[in-house]
C-alpha cells in the first residue's frame, strides 16, 4: 500500500497563455488533515478542481491512491468524497432523495448506509423535507453526508466553512478531526480562514500565484514561535520600567503600543523581570508570551498580500 493518498506531481495548468498553477508538487499521507492556503486567485480552487477531474491538467499528473486522475479517472475518484465550493444540491428534491441520487452512482452504498450517514450528520428530523427549505448549515451537513456516503479514503473540501456561523464551523472542525483520527480518512481542505486552518490541520501548504511557497507543520511552527521567546510586559510607566530592567541586567524595548514592553527570553527571565519591576515600584498589569499566529507567518511570507 502506498503511503501517500494524494500525489500531486509537477502539475501545471495553463488557460490561454496565463499560467494558473506552476509546477506544483505535493504529497498528502493517509489520514492527515492537510490545509491548503493562499490568497484569492492563487490557484487553490483550480488545484482542487484538477484533483477531482473537473478541470483538465495541462502537464504533470495527480495520483489518488496510486491511480491517475486523468488516465484512470473512475478508479481514482472512487476513493474521493468532495465538496467543491458550496454544496449545491437539487433543491426540488428532499435531502433523502439527494442522498439516494448520489448513493445510486456508487457501487456498494446500501440504503442502510444512507440511514447511518443521515444519523451521523444529525439530520434525521429534516431529511425528508425539500432541500430548498434547508438553512445553509443544514445544506453543509447534507454536503458532508453525500461526501462520506461511500467511506472515501480522501475527503476534499473547498472553503468548507464559507457562510457557516461559528457554531457550525466548530461542529465541522470537530467532525473532520474525528473522521481523520477514528477512520483514518485523509482530509484535504482549502480555506482562507487562517485561524481555522491552525485549529483543524496537521500540515498546511501555502501557495501564491500558483506556486508552492512553503509547507508547514502546524504544531511545530507554533512550538518554534514560542521558543523564539518574545515576552510582552504591560506596565504603567514604560520609561522607568526599561531603566529598572536595565539595572537588573535585562534589555527591554518599547513597542508601538503604549505601556507595552518586550523582552527576549524564557519563563525564568520573565519571572526575574517581574521581580525587578515590582521591586522598583512599577505596576505590572500583565505578562504573556507573544505567539505568532499562522496568519502573521502567512502575511510575512506572502508579503502582506490580502488573504480575504
Amino acid at each position: 500500500m502506498e503511503d501517500s493518498i494524494v500525489r500531486i506531481q509537477n502539475v501545471t495548468k495553463r488557460i490561454g497563455n496565463r499560467t494558473i498553477i506552476d509546477k506544483l508538487t505535493l504529497e498528502v499521507p493517509r489520514g492527515e488533515v492537510f490545509g491548503f492556503l493562499g490568497p484569492n486567485g492563487s490557484g487553490k480552487t483550480t488545484t482542487i478542481r484538477m484533483m477531482v477531474g473537473l478541470m483538465s491538467i495541462t502537464s504533470g499528473d495527480i495520483l489518488i491512491d496510486g491511480h491517475s486522475i486523468s488516465n484512470d479517472f473512475e478508479k481514482a475518484i472512487g476513493h474521493v468524497g468532495a465538496i467543491v465550493e458550496n454544496p449545491e444540491m437539487y433543491k426540488y428534491l428532499t435531502g433523502y432523495e439527494n442522498l439516494i441520487h448520489f448513493a445510486r452512482m456508487i457501487p456498494g452504498v446500501s440504503a442502510h448506509r444512507v440511514k447511518e450517514v443521515v444519523a451521523l450528520v444529525g439530520m434525521e428530523g429534516r431529511i425528508h423535507d425539500k432541500v430548498k427549505t434547508y438553512s445553509l448549515g443544514m445544506r453543509q451537513r447534507l454536503g458532508v453526508a453525500q461526501a462520506i456516503l461511500h467511506k472515501p479514503k480522501l475527503l476534499i473540501l473547498d472553503e468548507p466553512t464559507n457562510g457557516l456561523d461559528p457554531a457550525g464551523i466548530r461542529e465541522l472542525r470537530d467532525y473532520l478531526r474525528g473522521l481523520s483520527r477514528q477512520e483514518g480518512v485523509a482530509v484535504f481542505v482549502s480555506s482562507h480562514l487562517l485561524s481555522e486552518m491552525e485549529l483543524m490541520c496537521d500540515r498546511v501548504a501555502i501557495i501564491q500565484s500558483g506556486k508552492l511557497i512553503d509547507i508547514r507543520n502546524v504544531q511545530q511552527s507554533r512550538a518554534a514561535s514560542e521558543a523564539a521567546g518574545r515576552i510582552l510586559i504591560e506596565v504603567d510607566n514604560p520609561g522607568a520600567a526599561i531603566e529598572a530592567l536595565a539595572a537588573a541586567g535585562q534589555q527591554a524595548e518599547s513597542t508601538e503600543h503604549q505601556g507595552l514592553l518586550v523582552i527576549v527570553g524564557d519563563k525564568e527571565k520573565a519571572a526575574a523581570a517581574n521581580a525587578a519591576l515590582v521591586q522598583a515600584g512599577i505596576k505590572v498589569y500583565g505578562i504573556r508570551a507573544e505567539v505568532k499566529s499562522l496568519e502573521d507567518q502567512f502575511l510575512e511570507m506572502t508579503g502582506g498580500e490580502s488573504v480575504g
Binding site: V84, E88, Y90
Partner: peptide, 14 residues
C-alpha cells in the same frame, strides 16, 4: 447553472 454538475461529475462514472 445551479452548480450541481460538480457533485455529479465527481462520481466513478465517465
Amino acid at each position: 447553472s445551479t452548480g450541481t454538475i460538480k457533485l455529479l461529475l465527481i462520481r466513478p462514472w465517465s
